[in-house]
């Protein structure tokens, strides 16, 4: 296709766009709708995964020794005798108000199992994010501004290495040096409700640091790439040719346009944080949702696995959605209607 045909096509697609609503509002609404649909489909996948379970779930849980009568009774108790579609909507309706049913392993209400743990997980992820975001954005900016310098190359090597480290390797190194040999922080991050915030911050320091180290490398590299990409734009050269100082070029000309890519990077990494938390929780025996998930997987406690997966997926989808919307909302070309 020649350039002209492309131009014609582009023009056509511009003309096609709606004229009634602000394009920005329209796009945001579209993304929101898409996010909801995705969440819905994901919930179907998570629910129906159990339907795929080979053999009968009640039989499996009760073991081969169970009599057919007990199995039937248990099936009725689980509601397995009803059609799957009906059960799905029951389950979904419950999930929306935080009622995920009972654990198969210990018959406790899942909501009471999850509640505090989910808060702990969010606390840990938030803690890590508070350190990682400013750190990585600043380091990423510096590396981009002084690219190909010694500093940049050094940072590149370090981040490349730490991306390659498994989370539990970083965690155990920290434990060896800061908990066992250094005895500065506790190796096991047990929390309880009576602790003061300071105490909680102290106890959760090592898991938060582990997450920070892992996420910062990613975020920094992405920030650097976004900024370098931006600094190559003709309008940055134009600003230089207008005699603007380096500082003004960065603050006035690069930053307003860099907002979208940086916000995008941050939200994507927050999403990663929420799942990266699983391994770290296990290492530090941190009472979070991730640990519960791993334990439940080991016990094949399906209902708890379903609930935890839905929550993790929900947060993940939400953060990705947020990244999407924020990067649309901060794009100057979309902010001001044509």
């Amino acid at each position: 296709m020649s350039q002209f045909a492309r131009a014609e096509k582009a023009e056509a697609s511009v003309r096609k766009g709606g004229r009634d609503m602000h394009p920005l509002a329209k796009m945001v609404l579209q993304r929101l709708g898409l996010g909801l649909v995705t969440l819905f489909v994901v919930s179907i996948i998570i629910f129906s995964a159990v339907e795929l379970l080979p053999g009968d779930i009640a039989q499996q849980i009760l073991g081969q020794a169970a009599t057919p009568e007990t199995v039937a009774a248990f099936r009725a108790e689980l509601g397995l005798d009803r059609p799957p579609v009906e059960r799905y909507f029951d389950w979904l309706a419950g999930a929306m108000i935080g009622d995920f049913g009972q654990s198969l392993a210990n018959q406790r209400e899942i909501s009471s199992l999850i509640g505090g743990r989910f808060a702990n997980t969010l606390f840990l992820a938030g803690y890590a994010a508070m350190i990682a975001i400013p750190l990585s954005v600043i380091l990423g900016l510096l590396a981009a501004l002084y690219r190909n310098s010694f500093f940049d190359r050094f940072i590149n090597m370090v981040t490349l290495s730490s991306i390659s480290f498994p989370e539990f390797f970083v965690a155990y190194i920290l434990i060896v040096f800061l908990a066992v040999r250094g005895q500065v922080f506790p190796a096991i991050s047990s929390l309880n409700e009576d602790m003061s915030l300071l105490d909680m911050l102290y106890r959760a320091f090592l898991p938060a640091l582990t997450l920070t180290l892992v996420v910062t490398a990613h975020m920094m590299r992405m920030t650097r790439a976004a900024i370098i990409n931006l600094l190559a734009s003709p309008y940055i050269e134009m600003a230089r040719l207008k005699g603007m100082s380096q500082a003004r070029v960065i603050v006035k000309h690069a930053l307003p346009n860099a907002l979208a890519p940086i916000i995008n990077v941050i939200a994507l990494n927050l999403a990663y944080l929420v799942t990266g938390v699983v391994l770290v929780e296990v290492v530090f025996v941190y009472p979070g949702l991730g640990q519960l998930l791993v334990d439940s997987v080991a016990n094949r406690d399906i209902t708890v696995v379903q609930a935890s997966c839905l929550i993790f997926a929900g947060v993940y989808i939400l953060l990705n959605l947020l990244a999407d919307i924020l990067s649309i909302a901060t794009n100057p070309r979309l902010m001001h209607r044509k």
Partner: peptide, 20 residues
């Protein structure tokens, strides 16, 4: 693929391995 990628892969793997 978009939908499949909307579930974090470690979590998805845990779910699938529980079942299979």
């Amino acid at each position: 693929i978009d939908v499949l990628m909307a579930i974090p892969s470690l979590i998805f793997a845990l779910l699938l391995l529980t079942i299979f």
